[in-house]
Amino acid sequence: MSTPLLSIADYSIAYGTVEAVHDIALNIGDSEIVTVIGANGAGKSTLLNALMGVLPAAGQVRFAGDDIARLEVEQRVELGMCLVPEKRELFASMTVEDNLLLGGYRVSADRRRRGMDDVFRRFPRLNERRRQLAGTLSGGERQMLAMGRALMSSPRLLMLDEPSLGLAPKIVAEIFRIITELRDSGVSILLVEQNARAALRIADRAYMMELGLFTLEGRAGDLIGDARIAESYLGISE
């Protein structure tokens, strides 16, 4: 197997007084969707934020073979990592167009222009709303804008934190369709979801997280019917 795009090992994240993630390992290859599922509070969001450099972490983390443990968020963006956080973190007081422009802050003007065309092709709704302030968008449009803004940086690894949260099923289906399209166009995806059934349906591989540990991992298709997932979510075991 060639060098994975992202690989972490002995990875731990302390959050205040609590160690939220303990000694985990994970690999993501090129053009694959890897999902991390688990109940609320398992440590999934914490993991994504640490990988992006927003939270401090201990352990090894390599991106395309390079050690990135000490890099700042903006340096990770430059390398091709991008996070769409759970709360979207849009620039609410700015227009859709400006939000997208800033998504391409680290790329050349030329790439920015082409990126914008590409985003508008994938999300025609954003094109209709390009002059509107981001704060006035609906939940689904916000998620599209957040993803569009992330795509503007031409990421090699796109990390999505709960993209389905609070969205109507129809919009969730659309978002998930776009995620698979992105994978097919060569972007690797790390998808964190509470909506386990939907995530497993589109993912190639999956990890299940419980209390900061990976307790299950395997091909997504094999895990869909696994009873242990329902147990983890509803606490039926023991």
């Binding site: 389905s164 289906a173 979801e193 509470q194 909506n195 059934r197 939907a198 349906r201 979510y233 509803l234």
Partner: peptide, 16 residues
């Protein structure tokens, strides 16, 4: 509660 279908759907999500 463990077997309530509405609860299961709320927690595990529904397939799109």
């Amino acid at each position: 509660i463990k077997t309530n279908p509405a609860v299961l759907a709320a927690y595990l999500g529904t397939e799109p």
